[in-house]
Design a binder for these strands. Structure first.
Lengths: 296, 296
DNA sequence: TAGAATTACGGAGGACGTAAGAATA
DNA sequence: TATTCTTACGTCCTCCGTAATTCTA
């Protein structure tokens, strides 16, 4: 155990690299340019290494390394504060649920209906990209989160550094690939993922299964993006698929409902689309109740 | 993203709770009592909650929550610093390997022999408890780590928050329970873990499979400790087992060699004893070579 | 040469030590 | 009453803003 590395400095470091500029980072953080310059200089002096190249602003090798730690560190700092703040917060009539797009479905709707039948609750659902869901739960902006992903049957999802947060399995269902009707493989009863590695794919990491994850679980390189989608709307991604822009992987039940497309289950490798629930170590009563409803 | 929570404060917070005393924490950290008192007061003011009860010193509920974050946070801070320091460190003739007791075995010895056959290397092996191995690797005190644990076949070990550290599977072998020769179950060809939940167990979390983990993987409460062992020597634990102090779980190949005991493989649930290798994102040449030798 | 980062410098605030004051076992 | 934590207070040092300077696209 050595020395400081002040979170303030880390925060401005991250902001500088995010905005690729000292001055805009400064205005975002409410500092002067000068202060930001001093922050970076202090970090570099402390670590004994240049972290960012200037004009243009870009991370050095050491800076990239630090970027593998700093955001997680800052998030966990906020998570710690949030965990403690939760203890003294009066139990609320409000329930905020954060949810990744493919984790939102009839099961959640039903569970929420049942929750409201029990008594008056003000429910708020935020549909967000997966990392954002995790962040919302950790920082207590959401009382409960639902995330989805691909894994081997009954395996947990590989989630990053959740600290004392509780994760529970909610559902597993087949994984499907969404083809346009006209696609030669659309008539198949099932597909093998490695066979599709060289196909054209839609990169929609906020909505569908990220392509990097497909590479990982299929143990196959490939799955190259042809078009990139930013957003959290499965319909939009399905529309791209229908128009032939590329393939995308979704849970079967969700994938089955889109016009112009055919959802074909993945048979090899043996995978499932899994939904998991996240809640803090000390959940609100409503969150605990909803968790119970969702996990049966 | 809110505010500070200075790592210095977190560090003294952890030290205070570790030593259950402001004054000894102060002397350990090289502060005055007064400074420690001010640190705790500052943290409590910042978080708006009392964190430690005084006289006697003990964590409050909020303090316990913070303790779920603070050590991990401080470790990761050191890991970040170490990751960057590694970049500018000249490749060394030395190779430091950290290794949990049950992960040390003939495979490692053979791999090290092969490594030394390639050229002159100064090898250093540290046998430590599992958490300590992780800490050594993250803070670059070791170039490479080996940890062991229990998991379902081909599942990864559940390791805490490793950041960008790489983990690779090294070996899987049957899990065994070590019985004294005289034990009625010692003649069995295999055992079911849930049947042993009410037996007397040796708690040797630094050496054998921790009892909490047995509860987890067997989905059975029980596995109560009768005697506790601190240390990293499998022989000592085996001697306790031979003397009838309780049972312990070890990898079969290791468990098979102890006098006065019989190692019986675990058949239910379907589990393996797994060894995994840890190394930093930027390993030293020797570490990379050893990793290649160990993973084939 | 203009935009952008660094350096110089000064004031406000923070951090830690000394020392005196409360609190509890 | 002795030990242990807290509070008061002074000093030093750090942090950030203003402003002048240097750098580079």
């Amino acid at each position: 155990m050595l020395m400081p590395m002040d979170p303030h400095l880390l925060r401005t470091f991250v902001a500088v690299l995010e905005h690729r500029s000292f001055s805009t980072a400064a205005s975002v953080l409410g500092y002067t340019q000068s202060a930001v310059s001093q922050h970076i200089a202090a970090l570099e002096a402390d670590l004994g290494a240049r972290l960012v190249e200037r004009r243009p602003v870009a991370p050095t090798a050491a800076g990239l390394r630090l970027m593998e730690h700093a955001p997680a560190l800052l998030l966990r700092l906020d998570a710690a504060r949030a965990d403690i703040a939760r203890l003294h917060r009066a139990p609320d009539a409000r329930l905020a649920v954060a949810c990744s797009p493919a984790a939102f479905g009839p099961a959640l709707a039903r569970a929420l209906a049942q929750l409201r039948a029990d008594g008056p609750v003000e429910v708020e659902v935020h549909v967000l990209a997966r990392d954002a869901v995790i962040e919302e739960v950790l920082t207590a902006r959401a009382d409960l989160g639902l995330v989805d992903g691909v894994a081997a049957p009954s395996d947990p999802l590989p989630l990053p550094d959740l600290g004392p947060t509780v994760t529970l399995a909610v559902a597993e269902e087949p994984l499907a690939v969404l083809f346009p009707h006209t696609h030669p493989l659309a008539r198949r009863a099932s597909v093998r993922l490695p066979d599709l590695a060289q196909a054209q794919w839609i990169d929609a990491p906020g909505t569908a299964v990220p392509l990097a994850r497909l590479r990982e679980v299929s143990h196959t390189p490939g799955f190259h993006p042809r078009i990139r989608h930013h957003g959290t709307d499965p319909h939009a991604v399905a529309a791209l698929a229908a128009a032939g822009h590329g393939l995308t992987a979704l849970p079967l039940s969700l994938a089955a409902g889109f016009p112009g497309t055919t959802a074909v289950p993945v048979r090899v490798p043996r995978l499932v689309h899994r939904t998991e629930l996240l809640h803090p170590a000390g959940p609100t009563p409503h969150a605990a109740r909803l968790a119970a409803l969702l996990t049966g």
